[in-house]
């Protein structure tokens, strides 16, 4: 078991514990991810776990993320605040984190899929892109 948070000064003690005894959720969650990978392989079923819906003890989220680690793909989405889309060292297991403008996490999901849907170009955006490229080519024939 790790130590109680270090007191800031000789006299004042902060009573916020960082005990390993508290971490009861890490293993079950990793097993859930393993089962989700299994059904991705067998049936192509994708899964999403909302980390904010699980009553995690202090430090547990970090331990889950540390265990999953980082893999080959790390993408950033800059819209309505930053989003990070990271493939973990386990291919097919992604961590998607949405931040607000102040840099606070507003939601965090573990997605078990070959590609989180937020990374794919959306049909509506592709159609809008087609129109605007067509318009740009028509209007700026000389400069392009």
């Amino acid at each position: 078991m790790s130590e109680v948070a270090t007191p800031v000064s000789g006299e004042i003690k902060f009573n916020i514990q960082v005990s390993d005894e508290l971490t009861q959720n890490v293993k079950p969650l990793l097993h859930e991810i393993k089962h989700a990978l299994e059904s991705l392989i067998e049936n192509g079923d994708t899964s999403i776990i909302d980390l904010r819906s699980i009553p995690l003890a202090p430090g547990e989220e970090d331990r889950i993320l540390d265990t999953l680690g980082k893999g080959e793909v790390q993408a950033k989405l800059e819209s309505l605040g930053l989003s990070e889309i990271i493939e973990t060292q386990y291919a097919g297991v992604w961590v998607v984190t949405h931040y607000n403008d102040d840099g606070n996490i507003i939601s965090r999901f573990i997605e078990v899929t070959t590609m989180p849907s937020i990374l794919s170009s959306q049909t509506e955006d592709v159609m809008a892109a087609y129109s605007s490229l067509t318009l740009d080519l028509d209007e700026n024939q000389e400069t392009i």
Binding site: L80, S83, H98, I106, I118, T123
Partner: peptide, 25 residues
């Protein structure tokens, strides 16, 4: 000028805020 992708992000955060399953996105 908010893209569909941003809208999906908005919906994912909304689902989480409403304590709904991500399957509801």
């Amino acid at each position: 000028g908010i893209s569909r992708r941003s809208f999906l992000k908005f919906c994912a955060a909304t689902a989480s805020m409403m304590a709904m399953s991500p399957a509801m996105i």
